[in-house]
């Protein structure tokens, strides 16, 4: 559990960091919170020749409202999102602080960063899932300048992204408020990376019918995925329990989840059905509470694990670095 030999750099700015990255060629890695990267290095599963540590880089640690949207700096720690006290963020993006609580344990949340998680592109990670659900944009920078990649195009595979080897994730932008968004996940234990996670953002019209629905799943493919068919089918319907179960079936029908030694694809599909139904209910319940939608006609879901606070999930190598 000792890493192989590597060079270590500690640049003071983003400019220095991207220059350093380019100088070191494709084998260098960016170190942010270190909660995934260092574990992989200690186990010698990866052997970067150089680490570019962003510890001394200032100015990438922020949560800023931007019109009705939100921008999050890449070096923002999970704990700072969890503890965000801006009431407008809490209202418009409540799902973010609530989901932060599902990430690892307090020490992990204290060190791990938002941008690190996005860059690591774990198909189960909460931030990646919510970026896809909420149509976020990822800003990456290199010596050549910056560019913006839609989240749906950013995640290209398990731990693979559209960021090039000489680019650093600098910021993630959430363009539209999502007061009703909810995330529900199943992990074996609290703090685990989920086996499967589901998120939903449902808006109802004045008559209590579904005006729009977004549904995204994690842990069911090599990247977070949207359930487009179920989203389309939802529009215009009355969100009773039967419909939500039907939408959940539709959402999981589109999936062909991979197996791992613990959970086979069939189990993941079943979990997806259960969790999408719960996420839809949680989203609609949230709309009802906030007065932005009609009262949902759904029952309670015992033993659930939602952003409402009883989340169960865990992984010592929470995804924080690329």
């Amino acid at each position: 559990m000792k890493p192989a030999r590597f060079a270590y750099f500690q640049p003071d700015s983003v400019d220095e960091a991207v220059a350093c990255l380019r100088e070191n060629g494709g084998e260098a890695r960016v170190l942010a919170g270190g909660q995934s990267l260092l574990v992989l290095m200690n186990r010698r599963q990866i052997r970067p020749t150089a680490l570019v540590d962003l510890k001394r880089v200032r100015g990438l640690d922020y949560l800023v409202r931007d019109g009705e949207g939100l921008r999050i700096g890449a070096l923002t720690r999970h704990i700072d999102i969890e503890n965000a006290d801006d009431p407008q963020i809490r209202t418009a993006f409540g799902v973010l602080p609530e989901s932060a609580r599902l990430i690892g344990h307090l020490p992990i949340r204290t060190r791990g960063t938002f941008g690190g998680s996005i860059a690591y592109a774990d198909p189960r990670a909460e931030w990646c899932l919510l970026a896809v659900l909420l149509d976020a944009e990822v800003v990456v920078v290199s010596e050549d300048g910056s560019r913006t990649v839609p989240a749906k195009d950013f995640f290209t595979g398990a731990h693979q992204s559209a960021a090039r080897w000489d680019e650093i994730v600098a910021e993630v932008r959430f363009p539209h408020p999502a007061p009703n968004a909810a995330l529900v996940e199943f992990g074996i234990q609290q703090g685990d990376l989920p086996v499967v996670a589901a998120s939903a953002a449902v808006d109802l019209d004045a008559r209590g019918r579904i005006a729009s629905a977004r549904i995204a799943l994690g842990g069911v493919a090599d990247r977070p995925v949207r359930a487009n068919g179920a989203e389309k089918a939802a529009v215009g319907s009355v969100p009773d329990g039967r419909l939500l179960d039907h939408l959940a079936q539709l959402a999981s029908k589109e999936l062909d989840p991979p197996a791992d030694p613990r959970t086979d694809g069939h189990d993941r599909k079943e979990l997806a059905t259960v969790l999408v139904a719960r996420a839809l209910r949680a989203s609609i319940a949230r709309g009802a509470t906030a007065g932005t939608g009609a009262t949902p006609r759904t029952g309670a879901t015992p033993g659930t694990s939602a952003t409402a606070g009883t989340g169960r999930q865990a992984d010592h190598q929470k995804a924080e670095d690329r």
Partner: peptide
């Protein structure tokens, strides 16, 4: 062996 880290070999936690 499939359980070579505490990710795979799960200790009970306070919350369990």
């Amino acid at each position: 062996p499939q359980s070579i880290t505490l990710n795979d070999y799960r200790w009970p936690r306070a919350s369990d």
